[in-house]
Design a protein around this nucleic acid. Structure first.
Length: 334
DNA sequence: CCGATTGA
DNA sequence: TCAATCGGG
């Protein structure tokens, strides 16, 4: 979920207006789904659910965000994680513990009537499980929106597709795709332009990070950046105690990476981790063509199976179909 | 998170 | 026109 690179690269981010964006965006599906699951909730933390109690927050998020992006001339390609690499196990176990504790705290806060805490803990208890993944892929297929199954890390797959020139951006709130070599990273790709931070709504704007600018600004190579990240700590290793972004850069430039990385847990083979960032397993055969939405199928999934309002779904579908220059009413007036 | 409504 | 609020499933 992310390497704490933020302070290192904050100087190189460029805030872009929506009309300067456009092209194909490889979206980290796990990252987006987690945002929907944690954010689309009632004040007490209850997510959207259908009659059978299945979570539907992610389906709502996917429909409306996808419609927005297509309207803004951005074609999304959702990239799904595959099997996690073995050195990610400690991080995943840690996340599971945090999630389970949050779930207990959520239940307690609801009992005590503390809504603010309830929502906070509910957000932290969000889990992208098999149902969430399967139903998301099913909906995207019906919407005609392409998605790609990565063999391992989705961030690595997005980075590969961006470096190959098949997509314009890698999209994620995390910075890992830079370590995997994505030339352009886009963050805050939300249309509402707002995010909840400690209960308060703050404005956020799409921001672009260019790998070349980051490396040029830091006067580092790609391997240097990866080395610095490993010293700070990634999903794959703990990092070195007392080493933050600034010290990490300094140590790498002084050539002290090899000696200091030995202090990090789970980095017994730092060369292997570096190689993983440089040459991760990726799928090289993929198609990313957007198709027309299959209207009846979308209605079947959202309205019939999950109880969405037909009116809202129709509105979403309208927006999805309208940009892709087929014969609409508009064309008779041009 | 997103859309619609409201109220200044 | 826009920030705040509410309901979505």
């Amino acid at each position: 979920m992310g390497v704490a690179l933020r302070p290192l690269i904050a100087d190189y981010k460029e805030v872009l207006p929506w009309d300067r964006l456009g092209g194909i965006a490889a979206i980290d599906a796990y990252n987006a789904l987690y945002q929907f699951l944690s954010g689309i909730r009632q004040p007490d933390g209850t997510p959207l659910m259908d009659e059978e109690g299945r979570i539907t927050s992610h389906l709502s998020g996917l429909l409306f965000r996808t419609a927005n992006l297509v309207e803004k001339n951005i074609t999304p390609v959702y990239v799904f994680d595959g099997k996690p690499p073995k050195f990610k196990e400690a991080t995943l176990a840690e996340r599971r513990v945090i999630r389970e504790n949050a779930k207990e705290s959520w239940e307690r806060a609801v009992k005590e009537g503390d809504e603010e805490s309830a929502r906070k803990y509910a957000m932290a208890s969000s889990k992208v499980d098999a149902f969430i993944l399967e139903s998301s892929k099913e909906l995207l297929t019906a919407l005609g929106i392409p998605w790609v199954q990565a063999p391992e890390e989705g961030e690595a797959q997005s980075a590969y597709m961006a470096a190959a020139g098949d997509v314009t951006y890698a999209v994620s709130q995390d910075y890992d795709s830079l370590l995997f070599g994505a030339p352009k990273l886009l963050r805050n790709l939300t249309v509402s332009g707002k995010r909840r931070v400690n209960g308060k709504m703050v404005a956020v704007y799409p921001e672009q990070l260019l790998l070349d600018q980051v490396l040029g600004g830091l006067e580092m190579t790609q391997v240097d950046l990866i080395a610095a990240a490993l010293l700070i700590g990634t999903d794959y290793n703990s990092g070195v105690k007392g080493v933050g972004p600034k010290t990490a850069v300094k140590l790498v430039k002084e050539g002290k990476f090899a000696e200091r990385i030995l202090e990090s847990e789970n980095a017994a083979e730092p060369e292997e981790l570096i190689r993983y960032f440089l040459e991760p397993p990726v799928e090289k055969q993929y198609t990313i063509a957007k198709k027309a939405p299959v209207r009846e199928r979308v209605v079947e999934i959202l309205c019939e199976q999950h109880g969405f309002s037909e009116e809202r779904v129709a509105a979403g579908l309208e927006r999805l179909g309208s940009t892709k220059g087929q014969a609409t009413l508009d064309s008779w007036f041009s």
